[in-house]
Amino acid sequence: MKLGLLLFLIGIEGFILNNKNLILMLICLEIMLLATTVLVLTFSITFDDLFAHIYALYIIILAGAESAIGLAILVAFYRLRGEISLSSPS
């Protein structure tokens, strides 16, 4: 359980500190989803609940879809602006 909480806190901290770089924001979002999956599976084993395994599978599917859509938006953003950084162009 401590591992899941640590991963989630690392993901939140990275998301807040790297708010200028879209790729790092997507990576931090994936870390937070992974941490949520680890916590769900930990509680599933603790309480011997099979439905939590199915819920963890849905979280993993959601993370994959989020990555695909996020990278597609990132490619469109790069084609539009010519850079990935969220800071205003100088």
Rank of each mutant, 00 (worst) to 15 (best):
L39V: 12
Y78Q: 07
D48E: 08
F43Y: 11
F47R: 12
Y55V: 10
I54A: 00
V40G: 00
G70Y: 04
L50W: 05
I45H: 03
S90P: 03
G70C: 03
N18Q: 12
I45F: 15
Y55L: 14
I27R: 07
A68Q: 08
I10W: 02
G11F: 00
F15I: 00
L24R: 07
L6S: 11
L7K: 04
A35W: 06
L17I: 02
I69Q: 09
L24Q: 04
N21C: 12
I73D: 00
T46W: 12
S85T: 08
L41W: 12
T37N: 09
L80K: 15
V38S: 05
T42I: 09
C28E: 06
A56F: 05
L39E: 13
L7N: 09
Y55M: 05
L57K: 03
R81T: 05
G14Q: 13
I54Y: 07
I60G: 09
A52P: 00
L50I: 11
F43W: 11
L80V: 04
I45R: 02
I60M: 02
K2R: 06
I10R: 01
P89S: 10
A65H: 05
C28W: 02
E30M: 12
M25P: 05
S44G: 15
E30L: 14
I23K: 08
A68Y: 09
L39I: 15
I16H: 00
L41F: 11
H53L: 12
I54R: 02
M1V: 09
I23L: 13
E30K: 13
I16S: 07
A63F: 11
V40N: 01
T36I: 09
L22G: 07
F77R: 03
E30V: 07
L71M: 15
L34V: 11
I60H: 14
S87I: 07
I16N: 02
K20N: 14
F15S: 02
L57I: 15
A72H: 02
L57M: 14
A76S: 14
L57D: 09
A72F: 12
F47V: 12
V75R: 08
L39P: 02
S87K: 12
A76M: 10
G11E: 00
Y58M: 08
L71V: 14
L6E: 00
M25Y: 10
R81M: 04
G82E: 15
